[in-house]
């Protein structure tokens, strides 16, 4: 069986391991809640991570499906961009998939060199490296968005006031009637 076959056979256990690995990046006292609370409105973080990691795994194996992966990564990283993670911590969960897959292969008693999946694994891990780069771009976009929102708020707070105080006189949107 090739690697793709193994991965799809082991899909649910790999996804579960990956979800657990991501939740383990949160403080120990909070993990219980993030893992156990099933109501998606009471526990949006746990619910978003669980669902989006599953979709991301499927999108990664399906091709990979880049558009779908972007959506999943955006939903995950929009979250992690405002939590207590450094940039590397925020995206490092993608790398974890490498070791999770290798550990699983090992646990199944599959020797990588002898079963002819070495080349498959090399491509798989290369794709993960690309996924990390994609994640890094998306993380940066989320951070950029936060800075834009800050600037936008400041402009909105004082914009009208400056105009009303006649401190600024910008070119109007439409030409006045002659």
């Amino acid at each position: 069986m090739d690697l793709a076959g193994i991965l799809s056979l082991e899909r649910s256990s790999l996804i579960k391991k990956w979800q657990e690995a991501v939740l383990d990046t949160y403080p120990a006292d909070s993990r219980q809640f993030l893992k156990k609370e099933r109501d998606k409105f009471s526990n949006p973080v746990g619910s978003i991570l669980e669902n989006e990691l599953m979709s991301l795994f499927d999108a990664f194996l399906a091709g990979p499906d880049r558009d779908k992966m972007i959506v999943c990564l955006e939903n995950i990283l929009r979250l992690r961009a405002v939590q207590d993670f450094s940039p590397s911590q925020a995206v490092s969960f993608v790398f974890r998939l490498k070791s999770i897959v290798r550990e699983r292969l090992h646990a199944k008693g599959l020797e990588i060199d002898t079963n002819g999946i070495e080349e498959d694994l090399r491509i798989f891990e290369k794709n993960i490296d690309e996924l990390v780069l994609l994640a890094f771009d998306i993380y940066c976009r989320c951070r950029q968005k936060i800075y834009e929102l800050r600037v936008h708020e400041v402009q909105n707070q004082v914009g009208r006031l400056l105009k009303r105080a006649n401190l600024v006189c910008e070119i109007p949107d439409t030409e006045p009637d002659v």
Partner: peptide, 20 residues
């Protein structure tokens, strides 16, 4: 403005219900 990350994470449960 300077606590934007705090505001965004604190507002997540509200925003999540609006998103729904």
């Amino acid at each position: 403005g300077e606590d934007m990350e705090l505001r965004m994470r604190g507002g997540l449960p509200r925003a999540n219900a609006v998103k729904y």
